[in-house]
Write a protein that binds this DNA or RNA. Structure first.
Length: 342
DNA sequence: ATGGTTTTTACTGCGTC
DNA sequence: GACGCGGTAAAAACCAT
């Protein structure tokens, strides 16, 4: 159930996997991706607690201390209204969106309507001059109304994105990307016949993926107001029509979040990433659910580090089944070379 | 529509604390 | 006996053709 679209680009991956080509060259963010730039997403900073190395998943909303092994800041959630989420155009400033909860207040049915009949309020027909004038008015009114409708759905969509992002603890930059996608979708007239919530959810999902702050489709669905399949459909639609370049999700992007959810020490996280590294080298990741691979790697790392968490526990945080972990983790251990301490 | 792959569901057996 | 783990068969989900 999990995998839906998260690795739908599997063919691409498995082709470019066997070593030779680095990442298909499509990525726009070279840093946070791939084993080649393995440690580039770790930046050395100061640790407030032990003064040691601070490992940091940059755009991921997670900051982990390498020495004392604790998550310093995790899933930095900001509740409250999104102020200034859109930096680009000037008129963006006018379409500010308030706090998520104000979303429902927007349309109070205040828009004006001009009747199509050429009659006055008493039912008398209009003289030709007035008829012409009414035509003009109607035309303008139509324009205003449709543009307002567009604004309004955009506003609703952005509010929805913000609400979901808050619920998922997605950092601000990702929300901005999601907002940008939403705007592009509107501009490209992609909303027709689809629910606002579906597109908004898909935009957020796509933004999370492209910014390497992945949230699984199930996680998105968990806070969305529409079903998974609809989000998936909308996502595909967006990707195709907007030419979004989506690489397969790197399982490692899930590791630190899952690890901290499991209260696992730093060493396990590092180990799990090593395991995934090895597994990737063996081609064990392509075509498989990234969440499943991450879960299996964490389980395996737990065994190796003598910090075991039950399959059930790992399965729960990763939203996969124990069976998947079982099927995967032995392969991973094999890839690592089963005899290995630390 | 069909086929192939992966994941899930459901269930059973085994060893251990 | 409960629990964690492993295996399996059938079903479901997904992609590709």
């Amino acid at each position: 159930m999990v995998r839906t679209l998260e690795h739908e680009t599997r063919r691409t991956e498995s082709e470019s996997e066997p070593g030779s080509r680095p990442e298909g060259g499509t990525r726009t963010k070279p840093e946070t991706e791939g084993s080649e730039a393995a440690s580039s997403r770790r930046e050395h900073e100061r640790c407030p607690e032990c003064g040691g190395t601070l490992t940091r998943a940059h755009a991921r909303g997670e900051t982990v201390c390498g020495d004392c092994g604790l998550v310093v800041r995790e899933n930095e959630i900001d509740h409250g209204p999104e102020w200034r989420a859109f930096d680009s155009a000037e008129r963006d400033r006018r379409s500010r969106v308030g706090a998520p909860t104000t979303r429902t207040l927007h349309d109070k049915g205040l828009s004006t309507a001009i009747d199509w009949r050429d009659e006055d309020a008493h039912g008398r027909s209009l003289v030709p001059e007035k008829r012409a004038r009414m035509d003009r008015l109607r035309r303008w009114q139509g324009r205003i109304r449709t543009s307002r409708a567009g604004e309004r759905t955009l506003r609703a969509a952005l509010g929805e994105i913000d609400r979901m992002a808050s619920a998922l603890g997605v950092p601000r930059p990702v929300r901005e990307v999601a907002s940008a996608i939403q705007r592009r979708a509107g501009a490209a007239d992609l909303l027709r016949g689809r629910s606002v919530e579906g597109i908004a959810s898909a935009a957020l999902y796509a933004a999370c993926r492209s910014e390497d702050v992945p949230r699984s489709l199930d996680e998105i669905t968990g806070v969305a107001q529409v079903g998974r399949t609809e989000i998936g459909r909308a996502y595909r639609h967006l990707v195709r029509e907007l030419d979004l370049e989506m690489a397969p999700t790197d399982p490692r992007a899930y590791v630190s979040r899952y690890c901290s959810a499991l209260d696992l020490p730093e060493g396990v996280r590092v180990k799990a990433e090593e395991v995934l590294e090895a597994a990737k080298a063996e081609g064990l990741l392509s075509g498989r659910s990234p969440t499943g691979s991450a879960a299996a790697a964490i389980y395996a790392a737990g065994l190796l580090c003598d910090e075991k968490r039950s399959q059930e526990a790992v399965a729960e945080v990763a939203e996969v089944t124990e069976v998947t972990i079982r099927n995967r983790y032995r392969e991973h251990l094999g890839a690592v070379g089963v005899i290995e301490g630390t």
